[in-house]
Write a protein that binds this DNA or RNA. Sequence first.
DNA 1: GTCTATACCCAGATAGAC
DNA 2: GTCTATCTGGGTATAGAC
Lengths: 204, 204
Amino acid sequence: MKVNNKERIFNVSIYLFSEHGYDGVSIRQIAGEVGIKESSIYNHYASKEAILDAILNFYIEKMLSQDIPIEDAGANLDLGFDYFYQAGLESFATHLKDEKMSKITRIILIESYHNEKINAFLKKSIINDAVDGWVKLFDLMKFKKVIREDADSRQLAESFYKYGMFLLYEHYIVNYPEDDNEFVEMLCEKSRRHIELIYNSVRR
Amino acid sequence: MKVNNKERIFNVSIYLFSEHGYDGVSIRQIAGEVGIKESSIYNHYASKEAILDAILNFYIEKMLSQDIPIEDAGANLDLGFDYFYQAGLESFATHLKDEKMSKITRIILIESYHNEKINAFLKKSIINDAVDGWVKLFDLMKFKKVIREDADSRQLAESFYKYGMFLLYEHYIVNYPEDDNEFVEMLCEKSRRHIELIYNSVRR
DNA sequence: GTCTATACCCAGATAGAC
DNA sequence: GTCTATCTGGGTATAGAC
């Protein structure tokens, strides 16, 4: 049953790219792993680059399809900080527990230094938009007089979020391979302790 | 004057590797940039890998040659937190202001996902040893009753240092290229605000 | 220490038979 | 849609003349 070789090329590429990087994998390797000849790949994808593009688009679509609850913070003033904190962190965490999404995350972190599309996505959607969301949340906390008015929302947002971003980088690049699910648990736990530190610093 | 072509190969390689990654640069390119034939490179370095090794060893030697003042915290209880904070951060910051060291830092962050030696150095010397140093420093602060006794020194150390590590990653990978010296100023400024947040959270 | 010449290998991609 | 065969280009590295 060689149904859907296109999908097999897609999945095999995710695995190989995440393991050895885009440049470290050849069309021949992908074809070999799928069990077809390299020329057959070009019936499904126009080029090697096109496979990577498809992988990135798959990831973007899944990531952006979720509701970002933090963005609605201003419209839901009655819901407390804990609600948004849980929602924001866990929506990301559940994606990482998906094996395919987890592997693509590693590809993104590996390739972002020289792939423009990947770099732009990481910069905007993973980092800047998320930080902006947390800024809104801290602004809300100021408005509700949960934290001090002279607190710097942006510094709070960055202090919180960028710590977590390094845990991501550390897991996928520095400590790779280690168990993804254990990591997600650890990420949630450490993020909780970290946000407590920060919160303690500015609460009223 | 073709004095010291070995050094020119070394310097050109640092530049090219930092720009395009190790795999993205060929021996031909290096030779072309130096102005010699590719075969001549092998009179100075046994292989392409040997050039990268030399670059890493150069970086390691420079990094580890400095005294790490935080390590001596226990022996210098009379010096305050600010002293160690300044010393720890600035010793790293001055390295980054050196153009060669800065470029190699990018190489290390780029290549750490698939180069064992680089990965081991990053993990041990740049991350873990440094975090351990900060743990000692927070322990000292507990001993001097500057911060609360029930504070978690390791969490404090990680919360502080790993935020800074992401700023490094963000600069060298995500936002590259941008001005290195401006970045170092920003790093010091943001680290200061960040440590203030954390300190506020646990001071007595 | 640098050169020319070359060995050897593998990359991405295409043409055309089946 | 998969195959065989092939094109074209580039990679690391070596041998041996000068």
